[in-house]
């Protein structure tokens, strides 16, 4: 029998197993129970396809917004050591740990009729609440920080000297960003994007409060699942399984990319 690696004690194995079970059992249950009954009909119903399309398109749109504006932000944050920058880092990460209910209330307080920007939006005749834009906005708010964090870590790992050399050779700041920083970090940025997309796809609580629940306009997959749970638990389970597989796919892609990136010199 092979001797155990120094880190492998049966006690440690046992304790780890507890958490693994808690984390994995619910997913096994979804897989084994979600396929029963009218799984195919639940998956191919117009309401499902509509919600799936809405989820995918709003997540993609949110990701686009996050990448366009989050990449420069992460780059700037990674290149400065100033105190206020560190505080800003904490601040923009906050939505990740915010309870969904708090996020929902916060978004309503910002973009609602009686919210901070209410008078401005009213003057522009813009109604955000109950619109598809509200889903995108919610996703940007709750999932954006995940991308920013990933991108920030990637940019931080770039050797400062590399940038200084480029600068000494006369490259402008924007060109250094485009031609050195971005290409170097591309796999990590894609990995962070996928993580952000997965989070956006799963967004539920704040969306329910801020965007409402209207099939075709604001009823995303998680909201459809919640609505289905009111009347048909089996259908909710099948739809959950679909979303689980999608999330798993995005997560696996994200992890494999970030692993590949790490082994590179």
């Amino acid at each position: 029998m092979k001797a155990l690696h120094p880190a492998q004690s049966p006690t440690l194995y046992g304790m780890s197993l507890v958490l693994v079970l808690v984390l994995v059992l619910p997913m096994i249950a979804l897989i084994t129970q979600g396929l029963g009954g009218d799984a195919l009909r639940a998956l191919s119903s117009p309401a499902t396809l509509q919600a799936l399309w809405l989820s995918l398109s709003t997540s993609a749109l949110a990701l686009l917004v996050v990448v366009v504006f989050g990449t420069p932000l992460s780059y700037l944050l990674s290149r400065s050591k100033a105190r206020w920058v560190e505080n800003l880092q904490t601040l923009v990460q906050l939505p990740v740990v915010l309870p969904p209910a708090v996020a929902g209330v916060a978004l309503l307080s910002t973009f609602g009729q009686k919210g901070l920007l209410g008078p401005l939006l009213h003057a522009m005749e813009l109604r955000i609440v109950f619109s598809t834009a509200a889903i995108v906005l919610t996703s940007v708010f709750v999932a954006g920080p995940l991308y920013v964090q990933g991108a920030l870590n990637a940019f931080s790992s770039i050797d400062e000297e590399l940038l200084l050399v480029a600068r000494s050779m006369g490259a402008k700041s924007l060109r250094i960003f485009w031609q050195i920083a971005l290409p170097l970090c591309r796999p990590a940025l894609i990995s962070a994007s996928l993580l952000c997309a997965a989070r956006a796809l799963g967004e539920f609580g704040a969306t329910l409060m801020f965007a409402g629940n209207l099939p075709g306009r604001t009823q995303t997959m998680p909201l459809l699942i919640y609505t289905a749970m009111e009347s048909d638990f089996a259908r909710a389970r099948t739809l959950s399984l679909l979303l689980l597989l999608l999330s798993a796919l995005l997560l696996a892609l994200s992890f494999s990319l970030s692993r590949k990136w790490r082994v590179q010199p």
Partner: peptide
Amino acid sequence: LKRVQSQIVSYEL
């Protein structure tokens, strides 16, 4: 009914 339904913005739970 149709006119009302077209103005419904959310089906709350």
